[in-house]
Computed example of a mutant assay.
Amino acid sequence: MSDRNSQAGKQAARERIRAERERQKKKEKVRRQLIVAGTVVGVLVVAGGIAFGIMKANEPTGWEAAKEADLVKPANTGGKNGTEIVIGKPAAKETLEVFEDVRCPACASFEQSAGPALLKGMEDGRYKIRFTMYTFIDGGQGGEGSKNALSALGAALNVSPEAFLKYKTALYSEKNHPEEADDAYAKDAKLLAVADQVPELKGNEKFRTAVKNGTYDRWTMEMTALFGRKGVTGTPAFLHGDKKLKLPPVPQQQMTKQQYYELATANFNKMIDDEFGPAKKEGGEQKKDAAR
């Protein structure tokens, strides 16, 4: 082999080696770029996941989310947001405003004792009743029983005013009403069990579905926003126009439950008589007495 051929062969070999090295360098560069790109994408995915997680964590839940839900107003309500619950005979000229919270023990005591007298005055046409239902005990005691029960009352009101009144009475009854610190009404199962004691609600699938789905949760938040209306921040409370009526307290003394109920009813009737005048007596006795 000549020196010239030998040199040419060596030169060709060196070119092949150089070309191979360049090819390997490019391959390695591409590999590094892919790794970096993959890492960036991974970081972006993780960052996006974290951001999404934070966004989801910051989304309102429960009753806060209810504030943003579509407003469904129960039938038999009035006012812009359905927060006016007025029940009574159309001919009744006066309106007695009643403020209550379903978890309120004082409200339960009133309903168990003088509740029938309250409803009798309405049935006799002495007044209509406007109910303003508060939920402030949830904030004071913790929990959501007041709001959940009010949402269920909205579902009952959607059935009829009679169903609303009977259900409210059942919720306040000695048999069903929990202690103030017991958030039993936060559970739909408890509310539905009480509803089964009301003929209009027992087996009423539309009512049950509304309770389970929280159909009237947003309405409940609209009612909750009425707290402090006309300066009322405690329950039970009674107003006639802008005048706050004073319910005489039952004397603190030893007595039977029946005696307590009788005194509480007598005190309520006195408050109503003082404000609206004596009730009409059966057989027109009031008119006869007045004529003498």
Rank of each mutant, 00 (worst) to 15 (best):
A149V: 05
L247I: 12
T77R: 09
P74R: 06
Y260Q: 03
E22D: 10
K202A: 07
P236I: 08
G283V: 02
G284K: 02
E64R: 10
Y260S: 01
L165H: 03
M133D: 06
A8K: 13
E144R: 09
Y260L: 05
G145H: 09
A69D: 14
I17Y: 12
Q24E: 09
G241A: 04
E68I: 04
A237W: 00
A290I: 02
E100D: 05
G62Q: 03
R218K: 15
T235Q: 01
A186S: 13
V102K: 00
V159K: 13
D138V: 11
P178S: 06
P116N: 09
E200P: 14
K56C: 01
R126N: 04
A264L: 08
K93E: 14
T61E: 02
S6K: 13
A13H: 14
K73Y: 08
E205W: 15
L118Y: 02
F136N: 09
R23P: 03
Q11S: 10
D124S: 07
V41C: 13
A155E: 03
M221I: 12
R21N: 15
V98W: 00
G214P: 09
V36K: 14
F207H: 08
P74W: 02
N58Q: 12
Y127D: 00
E111N: 15
A195N: 10
A47I: 08
T233K: 07
V232H: 01
E180W: 12
A195Y: 15
P105E: 02
G145S: 06
T256Q: 12
P199K: 04
Q33M: 09
T209W: 15
T169C: 10
P116G: 11
G142I: 11
T256F: 10
V159L: 13
K190H: 11
Y167D: 09
I85C: 00
A266K: 14
M255A: 03
W219S: 03
A184F: 07
R103K: 13
A66P: 07
D183I: 13
G145N: 05
Q197V: 04
A13L: 14
A291G: 05
R16G: 05
N269I: 06
A19T: 14
Q141K: 14
T265G: 04
T220F: 06
S173C: 10
G228W: 01
N158S: 07
V194D: 07
P60R: 01
D3S: 11
L239M: 12
D274H: 02
S113K: 13
E144G: 07
G38Q: 05
G42W: 03
F99Q: 01
G283F: 14
V45P: 00
K175Y: 03
D274K: 00
E111I: 05
Q24H: 07
K25D: 11
G48N: 05
T39I: 12
I129Q: 00
P178I: 03
G140F: 08
N204F: 09
K243A: 09
N81Y: 13
G154W: 09
M221A: 03
A13N: 13
F227H: 10
R32Q: 14
F110G: 07
G283I: 01
E28A: 10
K29F: 07
Q254H: 09
A69F: 09
I85F: 01
T233I: 08
M221F: 04
P161W: 00
N158H: 09
P60Q: 01
A47V: 08
E162S: 10
K166Q: 15
